[in-house]
Design a protein around this nucleic acid. Structure first.
Length: 113
DNA sequence: AGCCTGACTCGGC
DNA sequence: AGCCGAGCCAGGC
């Protein structure tokens, strides 16, 4: 039952398509789904995605590159370690050179609309 | 049924 | 350039 029609499922799909060593923002995903103002819902969806290995929630940060959701992971700094493990530089719970690692679904996947 | 909170973002000062 | 307030949608109490 892949309810791809659900907002949450869409979030999981997009997040699951984030390539290794890349990150994106909640707003980018939300906007890609047509809910630019519902970035919070993306984060809320991530709450359930955190249990999914197919959904690298650690690759999803806020627009500022801050690891806002790191507190929701198992460990205290698990999220940061995962990002650093992928070659992403993280400092003070914030991704360095975010522009270099940023992955925009709208740009990469393209809405083709 | 109503109010508060929350893994966000933007605009104004 | 940094801080504050408002907007947004959905879930929890």
């Amino acid at each position: 039952m892949a309810e791809n029609d659900n907002f949450f499922e869409k979030v999981y799909e997009v997040a699951g398509q984030i390539p290794y060593g890349r990150v994106t923002s909640y707003g980018a995903i939300a906007k890609y789904l047509g809910a630019a103002r519902s970035a919070r819902m993306v984060g809320w969806a991530m709450n359930g995605a955190g249990n999914m290995e197919d959904v690298p929630a650690h690759r999803v940060v806020n627009k500022a590159g801050l690891l806002t959701g790191k507190h929701h992971f198992k460990g205290t700094n698990l999220m940061q370690q995962l990002l650093e493990s992928e070659g992403i530089k993280v400092k003070a719970n914030q991704i360095q050179d975010l522009d270099r690692y940023f992955w925009d679904p709208w740009k990469e996947l393209g809405e083709s609309d």
